[in-house]
Amino acid sequence: ALTDLARRELKHNTQQRESPSQMGLPGVPEALAIQLPPAISIPAGAEGDDEGVIYKPLVQATLAELEAHLTLLSTQIAADTHRHRALKELRDLALAAGATSDSGVLRTIGATESTLAEVE
């Protein structure tokens, strides 16, 4: 519980910074430093931690930890892309079934399926 609390606190505190350039990253161009996150998430196991991810300030990260973070981000991006495509398809099905902006998506699609079953 204390580890989770410390993780959340570190993540929360590093997100409150106005600009990552405040981290003082010597040798990093300011245009890049502005885009960098103040902390990275490292998957469990990268530092012997056996639960979730750990958050580490970028200024303390090793190359291996940065690689682990990039792998985690790639996995998340791929999953988000798949979810995005599936949700767009669901939206399109709902629109084709006659959904309006305040219609229940699954209810509208389900009603269409029921109607089609009755017709056949």
Rank of each mutant, 00 (worst) to 15 (best):
L2R: 15
L2D: 10
T3E: 15
T3P: 05
T3H: 11
D4Q: 15
D4L: 14
D4C: 07
L5G: 04
A6S: 15
A6M: 12
R7S: 10
R7Y: 09
R8S: 06
L10P: 00
L10S: 14
K11W: 05
H12N: 11
H12A: 08
N13Q: 15
N13M: 08
T14D: 14
T14Q: 12
Q15T: 12
Q15H: 12
Q16W: 02
R17W: 08
E18G: 09
E18R: 11
P20N: 15
Q22K: 13
M23H: 05
V28P: 01
E30K: 11
A31W: 15
L32S: 03
A33T: 02
Q35V: 02
P37L: 01
P37K: 05
P37H: 08
P38T: 13
A39F: 08
I42R: 13
I42C: 12
A44R: 12
A44Y: 00
G45E: 03
G45R: 01
G48A: 03
G48M: 05
E51Y: 10
E51A: 14
G52Q: 00
V53F: 11
K56F: 00
K56C: 10
K56I: 10
P57N: 04
P57F: 03
P57S: 06
L58W: 03
Q60H: 15
A61K: 05
A64S: 15
E65A: 02
E65N: 05
L66K: 02
L66R: 04
A68V: 01
A68L: 02
H69I: 00
H69Q: 10
L70E: 08
L70K: 13
T71S: 06
T71C: 05
S74Q: 14
S74F: 02
T75G: 06
I77Y: 04
D80A: 14
T81C: 07
H82C: 01
R83V: 02
R85Q: 10
A86M: 09
A86T: 12
E89M: 10
L90K: 15
R91V: 02
D92A: 11
D92K: 07
D92W: 02
L93P: 00
L93V: 00
L93M: 15
L93S: 13
A94D: 03
A96L: 12
A97W: 01
A97S: 13
G98V: 01
T100E: 11
D102A: 05
S103C: 04
S103H: 06
L106V: 09
R107F: 04
T108P: 01
I109F: 03
G110D: 10
T112Q: 10
T112D: 13
T112G: 02
T115Q: 09
A117T: 13
A117W: 02
A117P: 00
E118G: 08
V119L: 13
E120L: 12
E120D: 10
